[in-house]
Design a protein around this nucleic acid. Sequence first.
DNA 1: CAGTGGTCTAGACCACGGT
DNA 2: CCGTGGTCTAGACCACTGG
Lengths: 241, 241
Amino acid sequence: MIDKNSPLPLYYQLEEHIKQTIESEELMPGDSLPSERELSESYQISRMTVRQAITNLVNKGYLFREKGKGTFVSNQKFEQNLQGLTSFTEDMKARKLVPGNKLLHFEIFPADQDIKERLDLGEEELIYKIKRLRLANEEPIALETSYLPVKLIPGLTPEILEESLYTYIEDELHLNIGHATQTVEAALVNDEDIKHLKIKKGVPVLLIQRETFLENGTPLELVRSSYRADKYKFKIDIERK
Amino acid sequence: MIDKNSPLPLYYQLEEHIKQTIESEELMPGDSLPSERELSESYQISRMTVRQAITNLVNKGYLFREKGKGTFVSNQKFEQNLQGLTSFTEDMKARKLVPGNKLLHFEIFPADQDIKERLDLGEEELIYKIKRLRLANEEPIALETSYLPVKLIPGLTPEILEESLYTYIEDELHLNIGHATQTVEAALVNDEDIKHLKIKKGVPVLLIQRETFLENGTPLELVRSSYRADKYKFKIDIERK
DNA sequence: CAGTGGTCTAGACCACGGT
DNA sequence: CCGTGGTCTAGACCACTGG
């Protein structure tokens, strides 16, 4: 079960193994885990390493601990509920919809004042302006405008946008996406939305604005999207403190 | 700085101390921390304990680590950006608005089928149904309907609702609120919204539905709220992975 | 009382980054 | 090469829970 010669860390192997026993329903919600000392003994790894595995699963919502009593399986594993920062593509896949893409606009130009400030750019710096129609099961669902600094993402092409931008950023450029601040509000459709999303005047849309940052805090992307309210709900899992 | 006789854990004391040096701007974004071995040496605590403090601050967004290089201060400390699960009262205070409350309805009755399932209740179990108008700076901002199991929150009264429900649950009943699943969508106002929120027909509202759970996974609360779209944006900070 | 998780130590070896 | 964070060990004592 645990392979000491594997290049994978022991705590990670144990973490995956416990996750499996939960997902295969060998362990049901409310069940208690073997104690840390028992796990340490039976897998022949130190208790601190066992604790590291368990702590990670507690942080992901699989387990919870009670002092003096033990460690137990949670009812809700809130990781899979589309928590975390996702791209449109990842989001649609999690909803079991087929994501689609139609590039409407791709341009490189100097950032104006507002965008320059929000992306923390110097004078004369160039940005990509990208406008895309987003589809789910071939139906228009959102109209999205993004701004990214050229400096951070050299060599971005329409072809890459056909695939996944986040994959390119993470796997090709080896940048670590950290977190995003997102505002969600309700609004009425504007003329551009009506044209592309094929909806009628007077219908509400979800207006989502996102600022994404790398792990070191550098601003990466500004996105403003209008989602058809009849087709899309924004769903999020939030932790207390 | 670090008091070995304090009842507070050493890792927590170090965590608070580093947080202070960041918040007082002794350490600026991008600055590197002393290495783990240096911190361990200068405070006379073991490296593992130093790591526990640093790991917590990384998880809260204050710091980030780079292998082979060091640990650095983030640009964005995303904790304060109203991340985390908050009550309406906490939310409004964070926005520097004065929260207000008007109880419209308070009732105890047997749960119907849908609510019974979502709150994981048995037959014949009683729930509170609470309808409140929420105010910010004395202006109506949201209409909120909540359902809670009587079994979990015995002795709930309108007076407690005047104060803070979450404070009562956490400080009086000693229940640990864990997390919530929230959906946000755009809709047009219905007749009840129009009456209480004093808005016109055809105006969009943000419809927010929340299911709150205790740490052990027990469902605590269902809430459905309509927020005036012209007065309220939903803001959230999301982490990658 | 025995068993649990919470905290802590003083080492160790590794892979990585930069010189 | 040396210094960094990443992983891991084999102990220890504490506070809390339950019988």
